[in-house]
Write a protein that binds this DNA or RNA. Structure first.
Length: 888
RNA sequence: GGACGUGUAGCUCAGCGGGAGAGCACCUCGUUGACAUCGAGGGGGUCACAGGUUCAAUCCCUGUCACGUCCA
């Protein structure tokens, strides 16, 4: 006998271990099985599971469990990402906290060793957390982006792209993060709106004939100005173009140039030009061959190109000092408050500097072309489809991708430099040495590039590098392209786009056929959850409190397409209760001898109730299957919830009680067998979403009755495939009548405050012959559930009885003795009022000649029927009201 | 400034060209052995606003307002 409730705390670890031991997470060896593969979006190796991971991985697990049960060779390939900047940051912070040497003091090799130590220590955390969620990944295939195999793939890709001239070294302005002292890509820059100022500075003309006023939000950069620009059409400045101003503080003449860039309508119309420290100014400088003066070092402190008294100052100190100097010189014309966007490093949170450096770039604009085409032609589809627009938008405007990072944790760039700085890009140092020696005609010393690659460079290879590429492995042949990628829209650019580009370039095939973009879990204000905002919900705490199944069901149910999820504990609790409900329904069946019958055929059951539930089970199985096949996660859970709770528990179990506890042995046996069969189907259908509780129930009912065709675990049982022919419209109608008679009768009783203990008769007044038969046959049932003394067939509604209509049949409850006549009169009057309104509405339609002539025949007919029914119901209520008047 | 999305019951959301839905919350009643992590019943909404298309609009179109996200 089952306990009263499911205990996730003890059952979940036990079941997970059993699954893992069974080998069921690995794809079947059956060569005829259709492959279905998913690669996990690799979480940061040193990270821990947050609610977004919980959602993303729940959906992947739902899908993989579903397809596994459908008999496919289902592979969910797990792994982790080395997450360069994020991990290096964590370890550096740890070093600082424990009073160790800093990264630089430690040196590269020792520091990297420390990171590996940290990885060994905490790298298993997130994997174990995924297990607690129930994730059925094939752990035997687990990969890490810094694995030897994946690193080899990275080197191969880099070298090949270089040989194809799709990777090149270039000196240009990059986004420089002064906190980490590394370049970052455009995507890693976050524009934040902040309060700032416009400082209006006067630059005196060299010839003493006046001044030009320029405004800037970054006064310190004026030390590196090399021109002042005005628009060529700007009449105010026509005369001074070609002249020079004397740059204050620095005391250097710089030219006044004409360029399209300045907006004459903004401020004075004149703009200071600092090519080394502004992206727009850099372009202007290029057009006019202006000198590029860099005044910062890697930490964004002023270097020796600045006047002596500024050297070594932080950029913000320098800013204050420059403003003070202008004030002292009498050249500060105005300070204007402003709100403007300032680029910040997404990891460091500090203001990013445009900074002139040598970096490696990928010609993304070339790789993007096939990636755009593949989505245009439907080789890869986005679900929901709207996200294609986001993808296209970015891909069509893609910029060269800066892939070098001045970090230590990551894939070191496979480039070696000769004595004259010439780069030899090869997969191994030996190969580079060989090429270098050949080139120089003598043995030379090479020095490897100090930089590592952007983390996304290696994760862009994930769908094929994890399957063994560049080796031609059987996994690669079988599981690539992968089928579905499930991820968040926040990394469409970072990751999805890069996988598309690199996958197509190196394998000639799309990396996945379908991309499902899951919602973002947000807080109440619609903000992303983040640690710094302190608005996170810890999924593991939720698992502790409600069990993994409850959290999974909640996330699945709420994952409507293209939506934000606002998570609440109440909701999770509700789905925990749902699990308990199923648990107890199973317990009830167990207590009532429900057991699988040998050779049970759902098509052969006789009792209408059983035929009905077999049909409903079929409908549900079909709906859930269709939904899951289409990533309709919310829809699938909705069908499951309604069927299990509102049909199976609320009605089937209740209606089956007389059969299960009655004297008709044949009917009892059939009902026991049917219930057992339905439960088995329910467990299967619900398993992908709630794997633990369903598996526990599956195992604990394994010995009830005939053995299941499929032995072992529910996880690897066969998904139900039920034919339409199991649906019996006649049985549906019968059960619908019984349910309606009871529901409406209850409504009448309670609406009139008839005490629960009162047991009037149920009078059946007017029915079809078939309905009469149904009510006769199920009299005992109706007595029990409606709490009436008997079901009696009469010719007319007697005085003092309250009639009600279901499915066109008139029933009545003689409850005058129990009720408040005035309250009943009020109730009936209100009801008549609402019916009158409805009648007016419908007849309005039907009296409209256009409606009758133009609307489809069925719609018109439907309205006619509704009108007739509503009028009949109203007539009956008015009759009852009249009788009430007579009685009162 | 551009793109995308959202405005439906107190809250969270589903629905979608022809009778306004669910869960939670709320109110009333109820422990007949599956379940109080429960059961029964009930109240509650000019489906953001304004136009348009249509026999018919919460649903389609246009505009307005509000909010959100992303990209400049």
């Amino acid at each position: 006998m089952l306990d009263k409730t499911f205990d996730p705390k003890t059952a979940e670890p036990r079941l997970y271990e059993a699954w893992e031991k069974s080998g069921g997470f690995a794809p079947t060896d059956d060569p005829n099985a259709e492959p279905f593969s998913i690669v996990i979006p690799p979480p940061n190796v040193t990270g821990s599971l947050h609610i977004g991971h919980a959602l993303n991985n729940t959906l992947q697990d739902v899908l993989i469990r579903f397809e596994r049960m459908r008999g496919k060779a289902a592979l969910w390939l797990p792994g982790t990402d080395h997450a360069g900047i994020a991990t290096q940051m964590v370890v550096e912070r740890q070093l600082a906290q424990s009073g160790n040497l800093s990264r630089r003091d430690l040196g590269r090799d020792d520091f990297v060793a420390k990171v590996w130590e940290w990885k060994a220590q905490s790298g298993g955390t997130i994997v174990n957390q995924l297990k607690r969620l129930g994730a059925s990944c094939d752990w035997s295939r687990e990969r890490f982006t810094l694995d030897e195999g994946l690193s080899a793939a990275v080197r191969k890709v880099f070298v090949q792209l270089h040989k194809q001239k799709l990777i090149y070294r270039d000196k240009r302005l990059v986004n420089w993060d002064p906190h980490f002292q590394t370049a970052i890509s455009d995507l890693e820059v976050e524009a934040r709106e902040v309060d700032g100022h416009f400082w209006h500075f006067a630059y005196p003309l060299e010839d003493g004939s006046g001044e030009i006023v320029v405004a800037t939000t970054r006064p310190e950069t004026m030390l590196a100005d090399t021109a002042v620009a005005v628009h060529p059409s700007d009449e105010r400045y026509k005369a001074v173009v070609g002249k020079a101003v004397r740059l204050p503080i620095v005391n250097r003449p710089i030219p006044i140039i004409a360029d399209e860039y300045p907006d004459p309508g903004k401020g004075s119309g004149a703009v200071k030009i600092t090519p080394a420290h502004d992206f727009n100014d850099f372009m202007v400088g290029k057009r006019h061959n202006l000198p590029v003066i860099n005044i910062f070092d890697d930490f964004a402190r002023l270097n020796d190109n600045a006047p002596p008294e500024y050297r070594g100052l932080d950029r913000f100190e320098a800013r204050r000092k420059v403003v003070e100097a202008f004030e002292a010189l009498g050249l500060l014309r105005e300070i204007e408050k402003t709100r403007h966007t300032v680029p910040h490093g997404d990891r460091s949170g500090v203001v990013v500097e445009p900074y002139l450096t040598d970096q490696w770039y990928v010609a993304a604009e070339v790789l993007a072309k096939p990636a755009i085409k593949a989505v245009e032609e439907g080789d890869t589809v986005f679900v929901p489809k709207n996200w294609e627009k986001t993808y296209f938008e970015w891909m069509r405007n893609i910029q060269p991708w800066c892939v070098s990072r001045q970090l230590w944790w990551g894939h070191r760039i496979p480039a070696w430099y000769g004595p004259d700085g010439r780069a030899f890009v090869e997969e191994t140092e030996a190969e580079a040495q060989k090429k270098a020696d050949e080139h120089y005609g003598r043995p030379v010393a090479l020095k490897q590039d100090e930089d590592v690659l952007d983390t996304w460079f290696s994760s862009g290879l994930w769908p094929f590098s994890t399957l063994g590429w560049p080796e031609k492995t059987s996994d690669l042949a079988r599981f690539y392209p992968t089928h579905t990628l499930i991820t968040g829209f926040d990394i469409i650019f970072f990751w999805v786009a890069r996988m598309m580009m690199q996958g197509l370039h190196f394998t000639g095939q799309v990396p996945f056929k379908r991309v499902f973009i899951n919602a973002l879990v947000r807080d109440a204000e619609g903000k992303k959850m983040s640690k710094s905002k302190g608005n996170v919900m810890d999924p593991l705490e939720l698992v502790d409190d409600y069990g993994a199944d409850a959290l999974r069901f909640t996330l699945t149910a709420m994952s409507g397409q293209a939506r934000d999820i606002k998570l609440s504990r109440q909701r999770i609790e509700g789905y925990r209760n749902f699990g308990t409900k199923l648990w107890n329904a199973t317990r009830f069946c167990q207590m009532n001898g429900c057991a699988r019958a040998e050779g049970f055929d759902p098509a052969a059951v006789k009792a209408p109730l059983n035929r009905w539930i077999v049909g409903e089970t079929t409908r549900t199985a079909q709906a859930v299957t269709a939904a899951l096949a289409d990533c309709g996660f919310g829809e699938a859970s909705e069908h499951l919830y309604r069927f299990i709770w509102n049909q199976f528990c609320d009605w089937y179990v209740e209606l089956a009680k007389p059969l299960l506890q009655g004297d008709d042995a044949a009917a009892r046996a059939e009902t026991q067998a049917t219930a057992a069969w339905v439960l088995d189907v329910i467990l299967k259908l619900l398993h992908p979403v709630m794997p633990f509780i369903t598996e526990e129930l599956w195992l604990s009912t394994a010995d009830l009755g005939a053995r299941r065709g499929e032995g072992g675990y529910l996880m690897t049982a066969r998904w139900p495939d039920l034919p339409e022919s199991l649906i019996d419209a006649g049985a549906d109608a019968e059960v619908a009548l019984i349910i309606a008679a009871i529901t409406e009768g209850r409504s009448v009783r309670q609406g009139l405050n008839v005490p629960p203990s009162a047991q009037p008769a149920l009078l059946v007044v007017e029915t079809t012959a078939a309905q009469r038969g149904v009510l006769e046959a199920n009299a005992a049932l109706v007595q029990r559930l409606l709490r009436v003394s008997e079901v009696r067939f009469v010719d007319a509604v007697p005085a003092g009885a309250i009639p009600y209509v279901v499915e066109g049949a008139t029933l009545a409850l003689p409850v005058a003795d129990f009720i408040d006549i005035a309250a009943e009169r009020a109730r009936l009057t209100k009801e008549v009022g609402s019916l009158t309104g409805e009648i007016a509405k419908i007849s309005g339609k039907l009296n409209n000649a256009d409606f009758v002539s133009r609307a489809p025949e069925e719609v018109v007919e439907e309205n006619r029927e509704r009108l007739a029914e509503t009028q009949a119901a109203k007539a009956r209520l008015e009759e009852a009201l009249a009788r009430l008047g007579a009685a009162g």
